[in-house]
Simulated scan of single mutants.
Amino acid sequence: MSLCDAEKTFILHGVAENFRSDGRDREGYRPIEIETDIVQHAFGSARLRLANTDILVAVKIEVDTPLPERPFEGKIEFFVDCSANATPDFEGRGGETLAIELSNILASAYKSPKTFNLKKLCILKGKKCWKLYVDILILECGGNLFDAVSLAVKAALFNTKVPLIKSVNIDGDNVELDVSDNVFDCERLDVTNAPVMVTVCKIGDNCVVDPNLAEEQCSVGSIVVAISQEYFSTVTSIGIGSLHAQTLCSSLELGQKVGIRLNEALMDTLSHITSDQDFGFLK
């Protein structure tokens, strides 16, 4: 997407007046729609649309061995696939760098036990644990990928059903698990503290959240903050440019304020959602 000088000036003036080109203020999000439990053979799934950005997430589970240094914990891994149909920028190897960046920031955001308790995934200390594979497919790119991906991941984890273990048989070094084959014998993951990401862009002398593609072109510096309840689980600078120390502080305050509100709206929506409905929030 390429903007002429007149278009950039229009966006800059709109942000300065706190009235963006699509009618939002600087703290406003575009309409968000979410569906859960839509991938048949996954343990949990969600599809989220943030304006023109479309994300599909599926969670798979398998039995694994805990890490030696973390014998009481399970595992979680993130894999991102940037579909070539999402944007021409993803053609060839264009999406690989972004996919790695998204995977790394998600892993960092979920690393703290205060955000996601991996001990709940431990089956037998040092022997067996559950491993979650979170597969993320970017179907369409309409700006603000980090926020959309984090919301979709949290929704998919909320929807994930972990099978119950009926019995554990230990014979020397061999461990046999009797896993219930009843689809109703399962436990839900606790994602109350799971982080949501907020991208804060500096455009002109002001900062905005949920930038669209045009606004991303006008940004002189951006950060992504992962908010878990009221604290930061990670902060990352993205794109080109940098922020002054004072601007960085104000960006963090804005990210925290919006992140808390976004998390409350998402959890409220997920608590009411059913498998045959889709909901919008923050409209």
Rank of each mutant, 00 (worst) to 15 (best):
E91C: 10
V59S: 07
F72T: 14
K60R: 14
H41K: 15
L124E: 12
Y110V: 03
L106V: 06
T87N: 15
L67C: 05
D89F: 14
F116A: 10
K111S: 13
S45T: 04
L98C: 08
S112L: 07
L48C: 01
D81T: 07
K75G: 03
A51D: 15
L98V: 10
G94I: 09
R47Y: 03
S45R: 06
V80L: 04
V57T: 03
K125C: 11
G44I: 08
E96R: 12
Q40L: 15
L50S: 15
R93H: 09
A46D: 03
V63K: 07
A86L: 04
I61N: 05
L106Y: 09
P66Q: 04
K127N: 06
Q40H: 14
I100M: 13
T115H: 07
A84N: 11
V63E: 12
T36M: 07
L102T: 08
F90S: 11
E35Q: 15
S108L: 06
N104I: 03
T115R: 06
F90I: 04
L67I: 06
K127W: 00
G126I: 01
A99Y: 11
E35M: 06
T65N: 04
P88H: 11
A46K: 00
P88A: 12
A86N: 10
I100A: 11
N85D: 10
E96T: 09
C122I: 07
R93Q: 13
P66T: 02
K128D: 02
G74E: 06
G74F: 01
I61M: 13
P113W: 01
F116W: 08
A58S: 15
G44A: 05
A46H: 04
C122K: 08
F90E: 05
F116I: 07
G44M: 11
E62N: 12
P71N: 08
S45G: 07
C129Q: 01
K125Q: 09
G44N: 08
N52T: 14
L124W: 01
K125I: 10
D37N: 14
S108K: 12
G44K: 10
I38H: 02
V39S: 06
L50H: 15
T115E: 11
T53K: 01
V59H: 08
E77Q: 11
T36H: 09
G126A: 07
G94M: 07
G95K: 02
K75S: 05
E96G: 00
N117E: 13
L98M: 14
E101N: 14
L56Q: 03
K127D: 05
D89L: 15
I123L: 04
D81A: 06
T36I: 14
H41W: 08
T87D: 13
K125S: 12
L48G: 01
E96I: 12
I123G: 00
A109M: 03
E62P: 05
A58H: 04
K111I: 02
Y110H: 01
Y110E: 04
S45M: 05
G44E: 08
A99M: 05
P68K: 03
S112T: 10
I38V: 12
G94Q: 08
E62H: 13
F78T: 06
D89Y: 15
Q40C: 14
G94F: 07
G95W: 04
